[in-house]
Design a protein around this nucleic acid. Structure first.
Lengths: 109, 109
DNA sequence: AATATTAATCGTAAATTTGCGATAAACATT
DNA sequence: AATGTTTATCGCAAATTTACGATTAATATT
């Protein structure tokens, strides 16, 4: 892709929020997180059984959620237990809350 | 892409939230929305002046935000005034709030 | 040691996203 | 009617995403 010539430097919060949002930008990943929220944790296999997707596809979605910091995997050989990453989850919650707390009443529009 | 054979039917909320999240999944679009939040509205040209991106690129980001329902454009010839779409904005806020209101204490993890 | 179970990674293909410049469209102004 | 201003759209190229099957890696069990 023809990348922008001038490097764009967004505020850290902007970058961080966009990163979280991007990870949330797929229904399968939202569904995985909802499941982890309600059940606290689960194994990759559980998700593979529940979603009509290949094991490798689920694994890839988990990887993205992990890269975004929203979940963490704990070794439980030969299984791996995934949970919400509580600290980053709270951070994401805060960023979205701030973003949506639109105090401006749109008087001018 | 090899699409999943079985059609996946996610809960409506899941689909809707993922759609909003996807639109928020780019720092430029977050920055545009932050600007609209603080200023209530602005013209395409204002944004083109502020971001080191081509006019067509800004226009495309605005289109995506509009398609996601997060903003709306009002004709103000020959300019176009963009504002937050208040109703859908509140809807998105609600969806994200619900999603992040993780009442479960992670006792089992 | 051989086998089974579980999950990550690799390689591939198709779709989508992101960016740009060029052009078109819509409307005001001259 | 011709020109100027503003924004959308088109066409293209590169990067990324999404999905799959096949393979590999790690660990338990036999």
């Amino acid at each position: 892709m023809k990348r922008s010539l001038n490097e764009i430097n967004y505020m850290d919060d902007t970058q961080e929020l966009a990163r979280f949002a991007k990870a949330l930008g797929h229904p399968t990943r939202i569904a995985i997180l909802k499941r982890l929220e309600s059940e606290s944790c689960c194994f990759t296999g559980d998700l593979v059984d529940e979603f009509p997707l290949a094991q490798s596809t689920i694994s890839q979605h988990l990887k993205e959620l992990k890269n975004a910091g929203l979940i963490q995997g704990e070794l439980n050989p030969p299984k791996i237990k995934y949970c919400i990453h509580q600290q980053n989850w709270q951070r994401a919650k805060l960023l979205f809350n701030n973003f949506f707390s639109n105090t401006n009443v749109p008087t001018k529009c």
